[in-house]
């Protein structure tokens, strides 16, 4: 859970930095997208780097889901008779919604790939100019896409807030002082990533990027 989660968080950070290139301009954003395909060249042939990264990420996602599923099944088996009355004691919203939040994130990732990687669900689907695809995606007329995107990013934010804390604990964070730092890091990363990812659709929506 923790190791695959850390890989995915690192990807989220790099992916967000790439997204923010949209504020530099259309040419820079498109150039970045093309550069990704030739990363590692001439050692690696065209798009090889991207496929290696996709393989690693797929491995991480599958491992993450496998670990989560086995934990959920163990939890179900560990309490065969449910409580008639169950209070929320500690009640961290993020901790309680990890499993269903994860399912929402998975559905979003599938949609996101069909939208902006393969282009099946994108109104423009111009592979040579990803900038145009993004702008078309979050056009004011397609407010429902922006709404779904926002909800998905917020789910990721909650998922990260508990997930990063939990991953660091699993990897052996063991002091009180470290725990306070750990919670601050988890909240900070979650907020920064949410802000970074949400800045793009709202910039398009408000006409800042067009």
């Amino acid at each position: 859970m923790a190791v695959t989660g850390v890989l995915l968080v690192l990807f989220l950070v790099v992916h967000m930095l790439g997204n923010l290139k949209i504020f530099v301009g259309a040419a820079a954003f498109d150039h970045y997208a093309h550069w990704l395909r030739d990363l590692g060249s001439p050692l690696l042939p065209h798009t090889w780097y991207l496929w290696i990264q996709r393989a690693v990420l797929t491995f991480a996602v599958v491992g993450h889901i496998w670990a989560a599923t086995s934990l959920a099944l163990r939890a179900k088996a560990a309490r065969p008779v449910k409580y008639a009355h169950r209070a929320k004691v500690q009640g961290s919203y993020a901790a309680r919604t990890m499993r269903w939040g994860g399912v929402i994130i998975l559905l979003f990732v599938i949609y996101h790939i069909l939208d902006l990687t393969t282009g099946n669900l994108n109104p423009v689907a111009d592979k040579a100019h990803p900038y145009a695809n993004v702008v078309a995606d979050f056009a004011p007329g397609r407010w429902y896409v922006t709404l779904f995107y926002t909800l998905a990013i917020l789910s990721i934010g909650f998922h990260l807030r508990h997930g990063i804390f939990s991953a660091l604990r699993t990897l052996g964070q063991q002091t009180e002082k470290g725990q306070r730092r750990n919670r601050a890091i988890a909240l900070g990363v979650a907020v920064v990533l949410c802000a970074g990812y949400l800045s793009v659709p709202f910039a398009v929506l408000t006409g800042l990027v067009s």
């Binding site: 934990l71 163990r74 560990a78 004691v89 500690q90 309680r96 990890m98 939990s166 009180e176 725990q179």
Partner: peptide, 19 residues
Amino acid sequence: GGCTNAGECTAVCPKGIPL
């Protein structure tokens, strides 16, 4: 079951064993 660091345990622990 397995631990997911939810923290409910330490909230009810009568001896306050920390997470």
